[in-house]
């Protein structure tokens, strides 16, 4: 079998299994509210649920469209199917996959990138699931104290700054020329609208970064 054929077989198989697992995840996902409603014979008032969803869906579903279009090519097939099932993409799975690909020195649009991204997301999902499960079972009384501890509060309030500072350090050092513009755009957007949602801001900074990099590439400022 040729190398290209084997590669195609692998990708085809990932898409088939990815879709099957995603459909399975949707069934499992919806089994929770169904089980609660059936078991307790507690069907909520449709108008109340509809009222709440009306406030959430425009933002959530629009963001979902942006996330699928933007993140899927970066995560690769396996990484994307797995990330959208296991959740916490922007704050965990995506940076984790990017970090792994950077460390392994592979490109996201290569087969090597696909493999590394999938393993990184799977490893992250298992670790997170286990930590949350162990935390819930064993440490919840301690966690309650940790959460209410004034001394530890700053650590949890600024976890995002710590996470992206650590992740950004390597990237900003390596690609500082194309990093300045999107950070600047992000700052300006937040000056105009400070509470801009992170998913929408991500879309703006990604567009700014790509546009800036293409212009710099055209002007031969970056290779």
């Amino acid at each position: 079998m040729t190398k290209v054929k084997k590669q195609k077989d692998y990708f085809d198989s990932v898409h088939i299994w990815g879709r099957l697992w995603s459909v399975g995840a949707l069934i499992v996902l919806f089994s929770l509210p169904v089980a609660i409603s059936v078991y307790y014979n507690a069907w909520p008032q449709a108008n109340l649920v509809f009222n709440a969803l009306l406030k959430l869906i425009p933002l959530y579903w629009a963001t979902a469209i942006i996330e699928v279009i933007t993140f899927t090519p970066m995560l690769g097939a396996g990484g994307a199917y797995l990330s959208f099932v296991t959740g916490n993409i922007t704050n965990l799975k995506l940076p984790c996959a990017l970090n792994a690909m950077e460390q392994a020195k592979v490109k996201s649009n290569s087969e090597e990138g696909e493999i590394i991204s999938t393993i990184a997301v799977a490893s992250s999902a298992i670790t997170t699931t286990l930590i949350i499960a162990v935390g819930v079972i064993i440490f919840s009384p301690v966690l309650d104290e940790m959460r209410s501890s004034e001394a530890l509060k700053p650590a949890f309030s600024y976890v995002s700054a710590a996470l992206f500072g650590a992740l950004g350090a390597g990237y900003l050092k390596k690609h500082w020329k194309i990093s300045v513009f999107p950070v600047f755009v992000g700052i300006v957007v937040l000056l105009i609208s400070p509470t801009f949602g992170v998913s929408t801001l991500l879309f703006v900074t990604i567009v700014a970064a790509v546009a800036g990099a293409l212009v710099m590439s055209k002007l031969k400022i970056v290779k």
Partner: peptide
């Protein structure tokens, strides 16, 4: 490759900007 690398930077930039002047 340029698009791919800069898209990564775009993601990081959003969070860096948020840490600098987000609300």
């Amino acid at each position: 490759d340029v698009i791919s690398a800069s898209a990564f930077i775009g993601i990081i930039s959003a969070f860096v900007a948020q840490a600098i002047n987000g609300k």
